[in-house]
Amino acid sequence: MRRIRAPKRREWRTMTDARTRTPRERYRTQVRAEIKEHAWEQIATAGASALSLNAIAKRMGMSGPALYRYFAGRDELITELVRDAYRSLADTFRAASGEGAGLAGLAHAMRAWALDDPQRYFLVFGTPVPGYRAPDDVTEIAAETMTAILDACAALPSDRPGTPFDTHLEGHRQWAAGHPAPPAVLHRALTVWTRLHGVLSLELAGHFAGMAFDPALLYAAELDDLLER
C-alpha cells in the first residue's frame, strides 16, 4: 500500500489588495482558506469522494450550518480545489512557455508540478469524484493546459503518414477547444498526454516501488520516444 502524504500548507492568494477589503471580507477569505486546507487533509487521508463538510466543521470547532455560509456544499468546495489545481498547472505551463520551453520543457514542468503535490494531481487526473461535474469555467482553465501541449506539438516537425485515428479526429475535436491544429497534431498531443500521464499516475500511486529502476529515467525515455516519433 502506498503511503499518502498530506499536501504542503500553502497560501491562497487573492488579486484584491488586502488594504481595500473590510475586516469581514478578510476574515471570510481566511476561513475559506482554512476550510480548503482541511479539505486537502481529508483528501490525502480518504480521497475526494469521502470529503465531508460536517467533518471539517467539527475539526474547526464550527457548527455545520456555520461552515455552509462559506461553501454552499461539497461540490462547491471541490470546485474551488479543482479550480486552484488547474490554475496552478496552467500557470506552470505559462511560466515554462514564457521561458521558451518546448514540449520537453512542458513535460518536465508537469512532472515537477505533480511530484510537488500528488494529491492535487490525483484530484484532477485521478478517478473522477462520483456525482461531481466541474462547471464551465473550470473546464476552460483545464483547456489551457491542453492548448499549451497542442501548441508545443504543432511546433514539432512531422512527416508521418495519416492514420485512421487522424481521420476520426477530424470530426471529434471538441476536446481541443477550437485549436486549429490539424488531426495529426491532435493525435500527437493525445499520445503525449496519455503516455506521460500514464507514467506519472503509476509513479505517484507507488506502483514502481520495489522495481529497482528510476521513474524519472522512465519518464524521460518515454518523452524521448515521443519526440523521436
Results as ranks from 00 to 15, higher is better:
205 A>L: 15
190 L>H: 09
124 V>P: 02
35 I>K: 01
29 T>W: 11
186 L>Q: 07
117 D>M: 11
119 Q>D: 13
87 R>Q: 15
91 D>K: 08
191 T>R: 13
41 E>C: 01
181 A>D: 07
132 Y>W: 12
228 E>P: 01
182 P>H: 13
214 D>H: 14
97 S>Q: 15
66 A>N: 14
193 W>S: 11
185 V>S: 03
159 D>P: 02
94 R>I: 04
227 L>Q: 10
158 S>A: 15
107 A>Q: 06
173 R>Y: 01
135 P>S: 04
92 T>F: 11
105 G>E: 05
45 T>V: 02
100 G>C: 06
206 G>P: 05
10 R>V: 14
174 Q>V: 09
144 E>K: 05
168 H>P: 01
228 E>F: 10
205 A>F: 12
220 A>H: 05
56 I>S: 05
218 L>G: 05
218 L>F: 13
181 A>N: 12
104 A>S: 08
213 F>M: 09
227 L>K: 08
32 R>A: 02
223 L>A: 13
224 D>A: 14
187 H>N: 12
58 K>L: 13
128 P>L: 11
199 V>K: 09
70 Y>H: 15
82 V>W: 00
190 L>N: 11
132 Y>E: 00
153 C>V: 13
182 P>T: 06
118 P>Q: 07
109 A>E: 03
192 V>I: 14
46 A>M: 03
203 E>W: 11
184 A>R: 05
211 M>P: 03
160 R>L: 07
35 I>D: 00
148 A>P: 04
32 R>S: 00
29 T>D: 05
19 R>N: 10
181 A>K: 06
198 G>P: 10
14 T>E: 14
76 E>R: 12
157 P>L: 06
59 R>W: 00
